[in-house]
Simulated assay, not measured.
Amino acid sequence: MIVIAVGANLPADGYATPLATCEAAVKRLAEDNLIRVVAESPWYESEPVPPSDQPWYVNGVVLVESALRPKQLLARLHEIEAEFGRVRRTQNEARPLDLDLIDYGGAVRDGEDGGPVLPHPRARQRAFVLLPLADVAPYWRDPVGGISVAELIDSLAAHGSTIRKIGPR
């Protein structure tokens, strides 16, 4: 199982809202001949992390299958982000699309070979990843510590970040 987080807080050119952008991005992933979307979470709306005056984000998760290796898949995700107008300048900036490789079949990688760090190093601390992930993969466990997605969500409850489901798929 490969987990990709989808998010945006600015509309991409040609799309009226961040939600429309995210829905179009999932459709684009599904049309890619190197990626097969097998499950889609509901969408959530969340405050920016870290807190800022940016617009709220729309977030979801897709489960995919792909023969691409992690480094190749991440490069493909960056290409798709660029198609939607994403330009990487500053960490945590507002963006029309963010596609993060969260988990690649339970692989644990430190990124020293130039590939992605897996699992995504901050996913365990982000309600906007964990809640949609629990919707599509309630059995998921963090590959590093073996902690269930439900336990990770419970550990976030005290942090109080605001997130709300905005609709089913």
Rank of each mutant, 00 (worst) to 15 (best):
E79C: 09
K71R: 15
D100A: 09
R164K: 14
V37Y: 08
V129H: 01
P138V: 01
I153S: 02
L152G: 02
R88M: 08
I153H: 03
E47S: 09
A158T: 10
Y44T: 02
F84G: 00
L133Y: 08
S161Q: 14
S46Y: 03
S155L: 09
E93Y: 05
A94F: 06
T90E: 14
S46M: 07
S52L: 10
H78Y: 01
V37F: 13
Q91T: 12
R88Y: 03
H159K: 12
R126W: 12
A123G: 08
R141I: 05
Q125W: 14
D103L: 02
V64Q: 06
Y57L: 13
K165I: 05
L99C: 04
G145T: 13
I147D: 00
Q72P: 08
Q72K: 14
D113F: 09
Q91Y: 06
R164V: 13
A157Y: 07
R69I: 01
W43D: 00
Y139Q: 14
G115F: 10
A67W: 09
Y44F: 14
P42W: 14
A127R: 01
W140H: 03
P42T: 15
G114S: 06
P50H: 02
E45L: 13
H78I: 00
A94C: 12
D100K: 04
L156P: 03
V62T: 10
V87C: 06
E40W: 08
P96Q: 09
P143D: 12
P51Q: 13
L99D: 01
P168D: 15
V87S: 06
D110N: 13
W140M: 04
D142E: 14
E112F: 11
F128V: 04
D110G: 15
N92S: 07
P116C: 11
V117M: 13
S52Q: 09
K165H: 12
G114D: 03
P48S: 10
G60K: 01
I163W: 00
H78C: 00
H120I: 01
D113T: 10
V64H: 05
V87Q: 08
D154G: 07
Q91H: 13
P116W: 02
A39H: 06
V58T: 14
L101G: 01
S46H: 06
R122Y: 06
V129G: 01
E45N: 11
V64I: 15
G60F: 02
D53N: 14
G85L: 05
R86W: 03
L152N: 01
A107H: 08
A75W: 03
A82R: 12
A127N: 04
V117R: 05
S155H: 08
R76S: 01
L74K: 00
Y44I: 03
A82K: 14
V144P: 13
A39Q: 08
Y57R: 08
R122V: 03
Y57V: 11
N59Y: 05
L73M: 12
D154K: 08
F128K: 00
